[in-house]
């Protein structure tokens, strides 16, 4: 019967060094493998409304953003007003948003700023579609990464009819709208 070898100081140091090396290597590789987050491509979005109903969170982690450098600051804003509204004002009957999440603020005649209150926004994309069809297309949807719980399998992505969801790196978690977004990828 063989005797169990006794661990001397040298063996202990060797083992410790091996563990340290392995740990450092794992840490280095682990840091390089960047975390991924779900995001939607506004150029592919068809404003189907499922971002509101298919997110595991209620209200959805998908919110509308307004890209101010594309916005026309229109008085007659189709993203804000019901089509055919008689009065261009903040009357509830004139507002398109089902949760009144868009604030209309006078800047200077005849321009208005439209700010989205994300705590009220449910990501339905009615304003996105209206602005795209009748305006400059400055409204668009994005998953707010500070709200999203980053499910392993995003339930909105599973049901998205335009396949516009993908995983993006942590360092670049949003897909901002540019003036050429819709020209480069015209909505289908």
């Amino acid at each position: 019967m063989s005797e169990r070898k006794k661990l001397d100081r040298r063996d202990f140091m060797r083992t410790a060094a091996a563990f340290s090396f392995t740990g450092a290597t794992w840490m280095a590789v682990g840091q390089k493998a960047e975390a991924k987050y779900w995001q939607l491509d506004p150029a592919k979005c068809t404003q189907c409304g499922r971002c509101t109903t298919h997110c595991v969170l209620n209200p959805s982690a998908v919110k509308c953003l307004n890209q101010f450098d594309i916005c026309g600051y229109c008085d007659l804003c189709f993203g804000y007003l019901q089509p055919g509204s008689r009065d261009l004002d903040t009357g509830a009957e004139n507002q398109l948003c089902p949760t009144a999440a868009i604030e209309r603020k006078f800047i200077e005649a005849p321009y208005y700023e439209y700010k989205i209150h994300e705590d009220k926004c449910i990501g339905c994309a009615k304003c996105v579609k209206a602005c795209l069809v009748f305006g400059n297309g400055s409204f668009y949807l994005q998953i707010r990464q500070d709200i999203c719980i980053n499910c392993n399998e995003c339930s909105i992505a599973k049901s998205c009819p335009s396949d516009c969801f993908s995983e993006v790196p942590e360092s670049d978690p949003y897909m901002y709208l540019t003036g050429d977004t819709y020209l480069a990828h015209p909505p289908a």
């Binding site: 404003q47 189907c48 409304g49 499922r50 509101t52 109903t53 298919h54 089509p83 398109l96 089902p98 339905c124 994309a125 009615k126 579609k129 209206a130 069809v133 339930s155 049901s159």
Partner: peptide, 17 residues
């Protein structure tokens, strides 16, 4: 069906226009 489909209130219908 775990999630409901969006109803008419969440749809921007431009067909009439």
């Amino acid at each position: 069906k775990k999630f409901p489909e969006p109803g008419p209130n969440l749809e921007y219908d431009i067909s009439e226009l």
